[in-house]
């Protein structure tokens, strides 16, 4: 006959384990509950409520590579406006030279900050052009997807931002961005990137790089505005995005993008 098993345990231990398990389960439920991140709550702050319709926009950016002359004014303006650290860039300009030998020469000395000195290449240059680069503010953003703490987020106006008060500096977003537009700021040890000059556009101004461009190669505007230039270009012209095969859905569009562009 099978012996009935009686296990005596002190009541206190049982209660201890019961309460410990309940506490842990409670903590788990709290962390699993859907909640807006601290970063997203910034957009509900009182201070901005006096600015009319500041949220009622959906921004896009167009780069016309056929107009860029590589003067570097945009890179300098961005550095001044956003105080980016030396050696890191929120925006930069690349020079492409394709020669009759089949070679593609690309360079971006100091991001194009001091413009482009002449460069020796092998053979004759068949075509040469400049390509400004910046954060593509993607809709299907790999960077906000991977951020473990919601420090990287997308605003209702379609701008991808980083909350430096929350960022833990893991660098996962930097690895995830296929365009290499993010970096870890050596001064704050947090991720940093182009914000389309969010502090300016929410006040109705254009980003610094757009303001200084002498050839109107950089165009910024609101897609919700029917007569905005960006909307007109995107609707009427043949525009392209960088690395479309990655399905990141960039909202930075390019006119005249060559197949050689990386």
């Amino acid at each position: 006959m099978k012996k009935k098993r009686v296990v005596k345990r002190p009541k206190s231990r049982r209660e201890f384990l019961k309460y410990a398990a309940s506490g842990m389960a409670g903590m788990l439920i709290v962390t699993l509950m859907p909640k807006p991140s601290w970063a997203q709550r910034i957009h509900q702050i009182e201070e901005m409520k006096h600015v009319p319709d500041w949220m009622d926009h959906y921004y896009a950016y167009v780069v016309d590579t056929t107009k860029c002359i590589g003067c570097g004014a945009c890179v300098r303006a961005c550095k001044r406006e956003n105080n980016t650290p030396d050696g890191y860039f929120r925006t930069w300009v690349e020079r492409y030279q394709i020669t009759d030998t089949g070679h593609v020469y690309i360079d971006s000395p100091n991001g194009g900050h001091e413009s482009f000195p002449p460069k020796d290449v092998e053979g004759n240059v068949l075509k040469g052009f400049f390509v400004p680069k910046l954060c593509n503010h993607c809709r299907n953003t790999p960077c906000t997807q991977v951020c473990p703490v919601n420090a990287s987020y997308e605003t209702p106006q379609g701008v991808v931002l980083v909350d430096k008060e929350i960022c833990i500096g893991c660098g996962y977003c930097v690895q995830a961005c296929p365009y290499d537009t993010r970096y870890i700021d050596p001064r704050t040890h947090t991720a940093d990137k182009c914000t389309w000059c969010y502090h300016r556009i929410t006040k109705g101004l254009a980003p610094a790089c757009v303001t200084v461009c002498p050839t109107k190669a950089r165009i910024f505007g609101d897609l919700k505005e029917k007569k905005s230039e960006v909307r007109e270009i995107i609707e009427s012209q043949r525009v392209m995005v960088l690395k479309p095969e990655l399905n990141t859905e960039p909202y930075c569009f390019y006119i005249g993008l060559d197949r050689a562009v990386r």
Binding site: Y88, F89, S108, N110, D180, R262
Partner: peptide, 8 residues
């Protein structure tokens, strides 16, 4: 392509 790295 000749060698080129993005500035960042």
């Amino acid at each position: 392509y000749t060698e080129f790295s993005f500035p960042n």
